[in-house]
């Protein structure tokens, strides 16, 4: 999946990927896509929940060899 910006959260545990995503998303314009790369499996459940709470759009997950990529589309400020 193509993303406008990427956030490296490899090696970080809950809640840091979510905390960093909340910070990073502020830099994006509405309509842009953020890719978050992580290796803590929790993100697969946490990111959809975060998107639901904040009103951003969860686009999906890609998992390859222990590396997890999740995609979030900024839909609101």
């Amino acid at each position: 999946m193509k993303a406008d910006q990427s956030l490296d959260c490899v090696g970080l545990y809950c809640p840091m990927p979510i905390v960093k995503t909340a910070e990073k998303i502020k830099e994006l314009k509405p309509g842009e896509v953020l890719e978050v790369v992580a290796d803590d499996k929790g993100i697969m459940q946490d990111m959809p929940a975060w998107c639901q709470a904040t009103g951003q759009e969860f686009l999906g997950t890609e998992e390859k060899g222990g590396e997890i990529k999740v995609y979030v589309k900024k839909t609101r400020q």
Binding site: C14, P15, I18, V19, T21, A22, A49, W50, A53, T54
Partner: peptide, 12 residues
């Protein structure tokens, strides 16, 4: 603090 910071990230 984990719950507090996560909640703040979620806009609470």
């Amino acid at each position: 603090f984990i719950i507090a910071t996560t909640a703040a990230s979620m806009g609470m």
